[in-house]
C-alpha cells in the first residue's frame, strides 16, 4: 500500500511542490522537482528531517540582557521546541567569547553543542 507525502522545496524561491510516494520506509518515487535539489530535499525531509536552531539565553553583567546562541549542527525537527526549552534554562555571566561552548552532546546528540554566537564584555 503506497502512501504520499507532500513537501515544498526550499532550495530556491520557486518552491516546487514535491510529492514523495513511499511504501512504509521505502521511497518509491519523488515527483514535482524542477532540479535535482528537490529530490534530495524530499528524501532528507522524509527520512530524517533536521533543523538548525538559534535562540538567546539570559546573561548577567553585560550591556544586553540576552546572549545569542545556536546549536552547532542541525537537530531533529520534532525536537526544536524541546531544545529551545532546554536552552532557555541557561543563565550565563559576562564576559563570554564567541564560540564558547555552553552545552555539549545536547539532547543526547553526540557532538552537538550549544555555542555562544557573540562576544560580550563585562560591564
Amino acid at each position: 500500500m503506497s502512501q504520499v507525502e507532500k513537501f515544498v522545496c526550499i532550495g530556491c524561491p520557486i518552491g516546487c511542490p514535491l510529492q514523495l510516494t513511499h511504501e512504509g520506509q521505502e521511497i518509491v518515487e519523488i515527483e514535482g522537482a524542477s532540479c535535482n535539489r528537490g529530490a534530495k530535499y524530499a528524501r532528507q525531509e522524509f527520512t530524517d528531517p533536521r533543523r538548525g536552531m538559534s535562540t538567546t539565553v539570559w546573561i548577567d553583567g553585560a550591556r544586553w540582557k540576552r546572549l545569542p546562541v545556536k546549536v552547532s549542527a542541525p537537530i531533529p525537527k520534532d525536537r526544536v521546541l524541546e531544545a529551545a526549552g532546554e536552552i532557555h534554562k541557561l543563565r550565563v555571566e559576562a564576559p563570554v567569547k564567541r564560540g564558547d561552548v555552553l552545552l555539549r552532546d545536547f539532547l543526547g546528540e553526540p557532538g552537538v553543542e550549544v555555542i555562544a554566537c557573540r562576544t560580550m564584555a563585562r560591564e
Binding site: 538559534s54 535562540t55 545569542p68 545556536k70 564567541r98 557573540r118 562576544t119
Partner: peptide
C-alpha cells in the same frame, strides 16, 4: 540571531552576530 548569513563571503552559514563580529 538566526543563521543564513555569510554563505558567499565566509563560505559557511553564520548567524548575524557571528557575521558582524
Amino acid at each position: 540571531i538566526h543563521s543564513g548569513f555569510g554563505l558567499h563571503h565566509f563560505k559557511e552559514e553564520l548567524t548575524g552576530p557571528e557575521y558582524a563580529e
